[in-house]
C-alpha cells in the first residue's frame, strides 16, 4: 500500500504541493487528473522517492521513503517502473538498449533472457522493427511507446505512468490504456496514472484523484468521481469551457 500523509513541497515561494494526503490500496489502478501545473507530476515524483518533501511523508508498505537515505531509496525504487512525461529515453542508447537498461541494472538476467524480454515488450507496443534506432529518429508517439516498454519490462510491483498517451492518436491511446490495464491486472501491480485524456483514463481506473493548485481536491472511486457535485471536478471531467476552472 502507498500512503501519502500531509505532503507539502515548495519550489522557491511557489507551493507545488499543499498538505496532500491519500491512500492507494494494493493492486489498484489510481488515476490522477487535474489542470496543468497543479502538482500531479510533483506528487508522483515524491511517491517514487525522486523528490524529498518539505513536510509530510510517503510510505510504501509502511516504509517512509521520504526519510530514507539515497541507498535505501534506490533499493525501494527498484520495485517501481516509471514512464516519464517527456519519456526520458536515453539519447545515447538505441531503442532496444533503452528497454534493456532497467533489466541490466535491476535484475540478474542473462543477455539472452534480456533480449527475449525486450523483444516481447517491443512487440507489445508495436515497435519490433525499431529496436536499433536511436530515440531522436522516432516520432513523439513512438518514443512514448518505448517509454512504456521500458517502464513495464521489469514487471514491477508499482508502476507510475505520467501521460502514457500524450502524442498518440485516439485509437492507439485506447489500445495503450487497455494494454496497461491488462498488464496491471495480470501483474497485480499498484499503478498510478496521470493522463490528460480523461475519457480514456476513466475507462480503466479503479480510483481517481484530482489535483488543483497543489491540493488534492477529490479522491474516490471512478463512480464517485463521475457523480461528484464539486464544480471543479465536474467541469474537468466534462471538459466544459464554462465553469470555475
Amino acid at each position: 500500500m502507498i500512503r501519502v500523509t500531509a505532503l507539502s513541497k515548495r519550489f522557491g515561494r511557489k507551493p507545488a504541493l499543499d498538505d496532500v494526503s491519500v491512500e492507494l490500496p494494493q493492486g489498484a489502478l489510481w488515476g490522477l487528473i487535474g489542470p496543468g501545473a497543479s502538482g500531479k507530476t510533483v506528487l508522483i515524483k515524491h511517491v517514487a522517492g525522486l523528490l524529498t518533501p518539505d513536510r509530510g511523508k510517503v510510505e510504501i508498505e509502511g516504509q517512509n521513503i521520504s526519510a530514507m537515505g539515497e541507498v535505501s531509496r534506490q533499493r525501494l525504487r527498484s520495485r517501481f517502473g516509471m514512464l516519464f512525461q517527456q519519456n526520458a529515453l536515453f539519447d545515447s542508447l538505441t531503442v532496444a538498449e533503452n528497454v534493456a537498461f532497467p533489466l541490466r541494472r535491476l535484475t540478474s538476467l542473462g543477455e539472452r533472457e534480456i533480449g527475449e524480454r525486450v523483444d516481447e515488450r517491443l512487440a507489445r507496443v508495436g515497435l519490433t522493427d525499431f529496436r536499433d534506432r536511436y530515440p531522436n529518429a522516432l516520432s513523439g508517439g513512438q518514443r512514448k511507446r518505448v517509454g512504456i516498454a521500458r517502464a513495464t519490462v521489469t514487471r514491477s510491483e508499482y508502476v507510475i505512468f505520467d501521460e502514457p498517451t500524450a502524442g498518440l492518436d485516439p485509437v492507439t491511446s485506447q489500445k495503450i490504456f487497455d494494454l496497461l490495464h491488462a498488464e496491471q491486472r495480470a501483474m497485480k501491480s499498484t499503478a498510478l496514472m496521470i493522463s490528460s485524456d480523461v475519457a480514456g483514463l476513466m475507462t480503466v481506473v479503479d480510483r481517481v484523484g484530482m489535483m488543483l493548485r497543489g491540493k488534492l481536491v477529490f479522491e474516490g472511486t471512478r463512480e464517485e468521481a463521475l457523480a461528484s457535485r464539486d464544480p471543479y471536478v465536474r467541469q474537468f471531467l466534462r471538459g466544459d469551457t464554462e465553469g470555475p476552472l
Binding site: 525522486l50 534506490q74 525504487r77 516509471m82 516519464f84 517527456q86 526520458a88 529515453l89 539519447d91 541494472r105
Partner: peptide, 14 residues
Amino acid sequence: VTDQVDALRMCAAE
C-alpha cells in the same frame, strides 16, 4: 531537464 537523470535513478543507476 528531460528527466533522464530521474530515469537513471529509477533504474538504480546513480
